[in-house]
């Protein structure tokens, strides 16, 4: 038997697509279907008329594509008392996200820098408390914060919600920057000190220019995190600063009479659009953010 084989065994073994390989791709495709179906259903539902939705063909493509549901979701769906669609929520979310991301990333960068290069006494303990803070359930902290913000009169304002996002974003952003700075050579810092540079000079001139990629990771992480927040927006947003997620939930739950599934799904897509766009455009950075910020859960 070996003899006949010997005569031909040369070079690459002829490839047969093995059953295991088929199984592997089969499983991958099934899994991909499971993960993609909801997105697909959400999109096709939003493009159908309500009559067509009622036919109950969940997976069917729309017979006539219409963006009416999108327009209604954006500008005239009822979010509780008012019927202005989800657009005011979009504006609020943009405001909250932009301001919170800028402040929280700057704070986190400074913290991480101070912790990794200027190890003053108690820095480790401080950092330990902060990391623990990343795990504390919001529920254990929210009420005292409400009391505090009422006292100083910023409860329900943009400042109030931004402050809360900065507080809850601080542990993870600090952690990301600290780990990044800790990976930089200490000599860099020492050389700058010998050259006579001070705390802020080193930070602005040397550290920040080197931190562009990690800053991008932090910005992406915070942007998706804050955009996707519901609880903090609900509690601290007051009447004027309700983010998109809260208004989205209001649209779906406050439907008088007929439930407009297509409008609901359109509103859902509109709310999901920003983080999805960030995800698909930033791929690598997003995954890095996950690895770095996995603590956020």
């Amino acid at each position: 038997m070996t003899q006949t084989q010997n005569a031909v065994a040369r070079g690459r073994k002829p490839k047969k697509m093995s059953p295991a390989r088929y199984g592997l791709y089969g499983l991958l495709v099934i899994s991909a279907t499971f993960f993609l179906t909801p997105l697909y259903v959400m999109i096709v539902t939003s493009l159908k008329t309500l009559d067509e939705v009622r036919l109950g063909k969940l997976f069917a493509l729309p017979e006539t594509v219409t963006f009416d549901a999108w327009i209604k979701a954006w500008s005239s769906a009822c979010t509780g008392v008012t019927c202005e669609g989800i657009s005011p929520g979009f504006v609020n979310s943009v405001q909250i996200t932009v301001v919170s991301v800028i402040i929280s990333v700057m704070l986190g960068a400074v913290n991480g820098y101070a912790l990794s290069f200027w190890r003053y006494r108690g820095a480790n303990v401080l950092f330990g408390i902060l990391v623990m803070g990343a795990f504390v359930p919001f529920q254990a902290v929210i009420y005292p914060l409400i009391v505090f913000q009422r006292e100083i009169g910023i409860f329900g304002s943009l400042a109030g919600i931004v402050m809360v996002h900065c507080i809850f974003g601080m542990p993870i952003i600090t952690l990301i920057f600290r780990n990044y700075f800790a990976s930089l050579p200490e000599e860099l810092f020492k050389a700058a000190r010998i050259d006579g540079a001070g705390f802020w000079q080193i930070f602005v001139r040397i550290m920040m220019p080197m931190s562009v990629p990690i800053t991008a990771v932090a910005v992406i992480l915070q942007t998706t995190g804050i955009w996707n927040d519901y609880l903090l927006g609900l509690v601290f947003g007051g009447r004027d600063n309700q983010p998109m997620t809260v208004q989205l939930n209001n649209i779906v739950t406050t439907s008088y009479g007929v439930r407009e599934y297509n409008v609901n799904m359109a509103a859902t897509i509109l709310t999901a659009a920003v983080p999805l766009a960030i995800y698909f455009l930033s791929g690598r950075f997003f995954v890095k953010g996950i690895a770095a910020g996995a603590v956020k859960g």
Partner: peptide, 14 residues
């Protein structure tokens, strides 16, 4: 991974 980029509200509603 893409569902992880979505909020829980969106997930719940879908």
């Amino acid at each position: 991974l893409y569902p992880y980029a979505l909020s829980f509200v969106v997930t719940g509603l879908i």
